[in-house]
């Protein structure tokens, strides 16, 4: 029998969405061009070559090493790219992803990434082209709603604040704005103005965000409603306690 990972327990829509994020089996909702992505990440000029920190691995004459033979380097590592980051912030008001599930998605589905999970933000460090591949995946799919999630390299607060009237997560650096029925980004992720407005697509309606979220909330799907999740959380806590109990 072939092993099929189950990822996450539960029968509610939130549990199902958590499984989707972890498995990488998410719906693609929008397109963002490579140049636009480069522009909003702000690490290099669009269209320029990837700066490198070392020569390509093929030219370096690596030592004979069984681990190197076993694990193929990622494209970014092969080319000697710099390590760069992408950082997302997700609103507590039914944003599709949360820092934990962005990290699960990155660590399970991408190689050569170093996800960092914090209470209000999630950062991934990787070789530049590997990081861009991950950023593009997360921005283009249902893991991101341009209104309730955003790229914020610095000054990340806003995830736990009430939404402004236009429904866009509060951002004190004003990186995104709603123009008509689309969200545009007119600054890069750290707040430097960029040459053009990058179209991030239509924001989700409140109903759609509630349907696609991975956040349990009492005003949407409550954590206590998911019997199977509760059972497993109890089991994990029980076993962790018993594991730590060591009578002499």
């Amino acid at each position: 029998m072939v092993y099929k990972p189950q990822f996450y327990p539960g029968a509610t829509s939130v549990a199902e969405n958590r499984r989707k994020h972890m498995s990488g089996n998410v719906e693609k909702l929008r397109d963002i061009s490579d140049d636009d992505l480069t522009l909003i990440l702000g690490h290099r000029a669009p269209g320029s070559d990837y700066p490198s920190t070392h020569p390509p691995l093929a030219e370096m004459g690596e030592p004979d090493c069984s681990v190197r033979q076993l694990v193929e380097a990622t494209p970014g590592a092969k080319a000697g790219d710099r390590v760069r980051y992408v950082q997302f912030v997700d609103s507590m008001y039914n944003a599709p992803a949360t820092p934990y599930f962005r990290s699960y998605a990155a660590a399970i589905n991408f190689r050569g990434v170093d996800p960092g999970t914090l209470s209000g933000r999630q950062v991934v460090e990787a070789r530049e082209r590997d990081m861009e591949q991950l950023a593009k995946f997360q921005i283009e799919t249902e893991m991101t709603d341009p209104a309730l999630a955003s790229l914020r390299g610095a000054t990340v607060h806003g995830h736990s604040l009430r939404l402004p009237e236009d429904g866009l997560m509060f951002d004190m650096l004003d990186r995104c704005r709603k123009e008509g029925n689309i969200v545009i980004m007119h600054k890069d992720q750290v707040g430097r103005p960029i040459d053009k407005k990058v179209n991030l697509g239509k924001p989700m309606s409140e109903e759609e965000a509630a349907k696609r979220t991975t956040i349990y909330r009492v005003d949407n799907v409550a954590f206590r409603d998911d019997k199977e999740v509760i059972e497993w959380v109890h089991r994990v806590f029980d076993q962790r306690t018993i594991y730590g109990f060591k009578p002499e």
Partner: peptide
């Protein structure tokens, strides 16, 4: 929440924010 006139920290420190 406070809206600053300029970016207070990070690589863009000092850039004008122009928050609506």
């Amino acid at each position: 929440p406070r809206v600053p006139q300029t970016v207070p920290y990070g690589p863009a420190t000092g850039e004008t924010v122009d928050h609506p």
